[in-house]
Simulated assay, not measured.
Amino acid sequence: MTEQDLIIFLHIPKTGGSTLNTIFKRQFSVEEIYDHELFQNEVIPLDQLTERQKNDINAFAGHHLYGVHEHFQKQHHYFTMLRHPVDRVLSLYSYLRNYPGYERLKDMTLEEFVRTEPEANNCQTLLLCGYPVQYDLNLAKERLESFDAVGITERFNESLYLLKAVYNWNDIHYNKVNITKKKLRRADVPKETIKLIEDYNKLDMELYQFAKELLQKRLNGLSKKEKKEMKKFIQAQRALNKQNKKAKP
């Protein structure tokens, strides 16, 4: 990997990606990162970037389907973060109900959301399959295996340390951002609805399990020194999280 290679963060919505993105951006200058259509303080859609601008971009983050690398003439490297499908859908529903453009969800029940909204149905598999739009579980797994690193939200700190080890990142301590204040949790939802979400996300359920195993395999491959460093980082981050929680009014 060289400094001129393109590192792509495939940001799947409601997987802790906003927090991860703040850390990702910290590793690059504003002149070389394309962050959700923002480049050098200007909003520029991907298909409107000039070849010169593309050449300057060494880091890319956004809610895009797999295949972003085809817009660039550079060596590329992908990473992403997955989340348990039930928790992701609950978080997404809570978040979108107060998001501009989704006013239709105001009076929509969670069950209706799951049955009718594409974003609540195997979205993680879809984004990893890329174009043409398809729901191919085997293809999604192949994509994940080709990525430099794959994390899961439920093991955010371990996932973050793996990214540090892979890309040699600096300063990965963080404060959580873009947290939905009023969100549903599993305890708030009937078991029948949990089952409904699982049924509508069968591909994502299997993909998530695959991602968990892939993460563990790569964590097992860390050196003894790296494992010790990871343990220290996790302890320090937990202490920071506690401190931030106490400081909240």
Rank of each mutant, 00 (worst) to 15 (best):
P190D: 10
K191N: 00
D171W: 00
V177G: 03
E192H: 07
Y167W: 07
S159K: 02
E206C: 04
Y161G: 03
L203K: 15
T193Y: 08
L184E: 08
Y200R: 13
K183Q: 14
K195F: 00
L203Y: 13
K176G: 08
M205P: 00
Y161T: 03
I194N: 02
L162F: 05
N157Y: 04
S159H: 03
N175T: 15
V166E: 12
D171P: 01
R185S: 12
M205H: 03
R186V: 13
N178L: 09
V166G: 04
I194Q: 02
L160M: 10
N157I: 03
N157T: 08
Y167F: 15
L184Q: 09
H173W: 03
L203T: 11
V177S: 07
K195V: 03
E192I: 06
Y161S: 04
Y167L: 02
E192K: 12
K202D: 14
D188W: 00
H173G: 08
V189N: 00
K202L: 15
S159C: 06
K176E: 15
Y167I: 01
E192R: 12
D188E: 01
D199L: 08
L163W: 02
L160W: 02
E198D: 11
H173M: 12
N157P: 01
N178T: 08
V166A: 08
I194A: 05
R186C: 08
I172S: 04
